[in-house]
Simulated scan of single mutants.
Amino acid sequence: MNKKLAGTAVVGVAVLAIVAAQFLGGGDPAPAAAPPPPSPSPSTAAPSIEVEHQEVYRFPDVANGRGWNFAIPVPPWPSDHVGDHATYRAPASGVVLETDRVPLTQEDPVSGLRALAKANQPPDYRLTSIAGREAVGSCDAGQWDFTYRKQGVTRQVREVGVGTGEVLITIRYDAPQPVFEANLPVLTKALQVADAG
């Protein structure tokens, strides 16, 4: 056999061996497929949202009889109703949310809250402030902040008065002072009022 031909045959066999090794599992292994993303565990899943309840105050005698309703989002807690006054109590924390409709003989919500403050001062009452605040819905509003003591516990209150024509709607958030800030979203949600139609 010719040396040149023999050399070419050796090179050809070597190339064929390398190609065959790659196809038959030799050489570098193929990269593994990425594992599927983990399914969310119960602790990272979005929390369920409770169905919202509403406390509705009706105004049938305005706007030439068309009227409207003032709907306040309230928590799904046990409640008591006496006339227009509604009280919602959190079962364990001592947090209370109250709503009411009272005649407004004053000129604005702030003066209405001042009249309420003068007439209703619980034991160890300490005024923090009474002032105007941003509108609630499309209505003028005022805010009354104070503390008082009940059964040896200092409680903090934020009461918002909303002027709706000749009526003052009050939304009162009342909580033991240590948990007041943590539960303030209860009031924030209640102030997202709507026209209930």
Rank of each mutant, 00 (worst) to 15 (best):
P60D: 08
T170D: 12
A190G: 07
V167P: 00
G83Q: 11
V74Y: 09
K189R: 13
D108W: 09
L104W: 12
T87Y: 04
V13F: 07
Q151N: 14
A14P: 05
A14I: 14
Q192D: 15
H81Q: 14
P109R: 08
G7K: 05
L168R: 08
A6G: 02
G165V: 08
A21G: 06
D84Y: 06
P123W: 08
L184Y: 13
D61H: 06
T99E: 11
A21I: 00
T188L: 03
V153I: 15
Y57K: 07
E107V: 08
P35I: 10
G27P: 10
Q22H: 07
V82D: 09
N64G: 12
A92I: 04
K150H: 08
V15D: 01
V157P: 10
V62A: 15
L5I: 11
R58M: 05
Q151V: 05
L168E: 04
G197H: 01
S43K: 12
V153G: 14
L191V: 01
P178W: 07
T87S: 13
A182T: 15
Y125F: 15
P75I: 04
P178G: 06
D84C: 04
R172N: 10
S93P: 04
V10N: 10
V157R: 10
A17C: 10
V157N: 03
Y57H: 09
Q192I: 04
P75V: 05
D61L: 09
A92W: 02
D140S: 10
W144E: 01
N120C: 07
L16F: 14
A71V: 09
P38M: 03
N2E: 11
E134A: 15
G161V: 11
V186S: 06
V179G: 11
R58Y: 06
G94M: 03
V102I: 14
N120D: 11
I171W: 02
V136S: 00
P176L: 08
A33H: 01
P42A: 08
F23T: 02
A33K: 10
A115S: 15
P42I: 11
D84P: 13
A194V: 14
Q106M: 14
V153E: 15
R133F: 04
A46F: 11
F23K: 09
R126M: 12
V160D: 01
D28W: 09
A71H: 14
Y125R: 02
Y88Q: 07
G7Y: 05
A194Q: 11
T170H: 07
E181M: 06
T44E: 12
E181F: 05
I171M: 06
P123Q: 05
W77L: 12
D195G: 07
A6V: 13
A119Q: 13
S39I: 10
A17K: 03
N183Q: 13
R158E: 11
F180S: 01
A135I: 04
P176W: 05
G137Q: 12
Y57S: 06
P123F: 07
R133L: 03
E181T: 09
G132V: 13
Q106R: 14
